[in-house]
Design a protein around this nucleic acid. Structure first.
Length: 266
DNA sequence: CCCATTTGACCTCG
DNA sequence: CGAGGTCAAATGGG
């Protein structure tokens, strides 16, 4: 991949900047939401939506930039795993029709069972240290070992599927350099680990106003780090601690790292 | 007993 | 056919 020496130019740089922005927003959200919820749960709810909107906007920018450039060389890094990301379908209506035709054409070997892939949903991804602090409540429905990855990928869907909420997400812990241990129980490593979170679809479950109120309450349940059972408990403990008494040093560390990355990019 | 998670089987797509 | 995504029975915790 050749790239111009000039800093700050080109699609990839812009995309990298936006990715950084998304990451920072996510971290900011992780910092603010628990605090805010203690003070005013309504504001916390509003903040969740605002954060979502901000991230959604920047994702749209990336999408537009990419389609405008339609360049072949720039690989969108906001989405770091190409297998996760299908192009955002421009013709949703057509896709809909396709879907229905497909439904009919399918051999009905599967009785009353239909598996949909996320391909036709809007996807946006970000890298974060706190994949569980996204303000929504998720239920895990699967976990998979991915080829060439040190850590399994976890699959989540919105808890409120009964309310026609089709939002799903996948969480993939990024590989550590060195790769000496597959499942490190080292606190530092767990804390410093980064996760690629890919969101599919939008939350349509926001209507009820009692939903977001208990989001934060359940945060410890949202721990989705792919560790063997015993270790999950450890992490849960750690997150609880994090929630009750924000781990400011760790967050500062994160922010400091972000600053470093900024310098690299610009 | 209810509900969330785990886990292996199954399905879909490239 | 392999890899990734989803389902659903089993399991365990509250």
């Amino acid at each position: 991949m050749d790239h111009s020496k000039n800093c700050g130019h080109g699609l990839t740089e812009i995309v990298a900047l936006i990715q950084r922005e998304q990451e920072l927003v996510t971290q900011l959200r992780a910092l603010i939401l628990p605090q805010l919820h203690n003070v005013d749960s309504r504001s916390a709810e509003l903040a969740v939506q605002l954060f979502d909107d901000v991230i959604g906007c920047s994702t749209s920018v990336v999408t537009k930039l990419f389609s405008a450039g339609s360049g072949s060389r720039a690989t969108i890094e906001v989405i770091d795993d190409k297998s996760l990301v299908r192009k955002n379908s421009t013709s949703t209506a057509a896709a809909d029709i396709d879907d229905k035709m497909e439904e009919q054409a399918r051999p009905s070997s599967i009785v009353g069972r239909k598996r949909r892939r996320n391909d036709d949903k809007q996807s946006r991804s970000l890298v974060t240290n706190a994949p569980h602090y996204d303000g929504h409540q998720w239920r895990k429905y699967g976990q998979k070992n991915i080829n060439g990855r040190q850590h399994a990928r976890s699959y989540y869907r919105c808890t409120y599927t009964e309310r026609n909420c089709s939002a799903t997400k996948t969480v993939q812990q990024q590989d550590q350099d060195g790769g000496s241990s597959i499942y490190s129980t080292d606190d530092c490593e767990v804390r410093g680990a980064k996760y690629t979170v890919v969101y599919y679809g939008d939350h349509t479950c926001k209507d009820g106003d009692n939903i977001s109120n208990n989001i934060i309450d359940h945060l410890p349940n949202l721990v989705d780090i792919d560790l063997p059972r015993g270790e999950t408990e450890r992490v849960t403990e750690e997150i609880s601690e994090f929630e009750v008494d924000l781990d400011v040093p760790a967050l500062l560390e994160v922010f400091n790292n972000s600053q470093l990355n900024w310098e690299i990019v610009c």
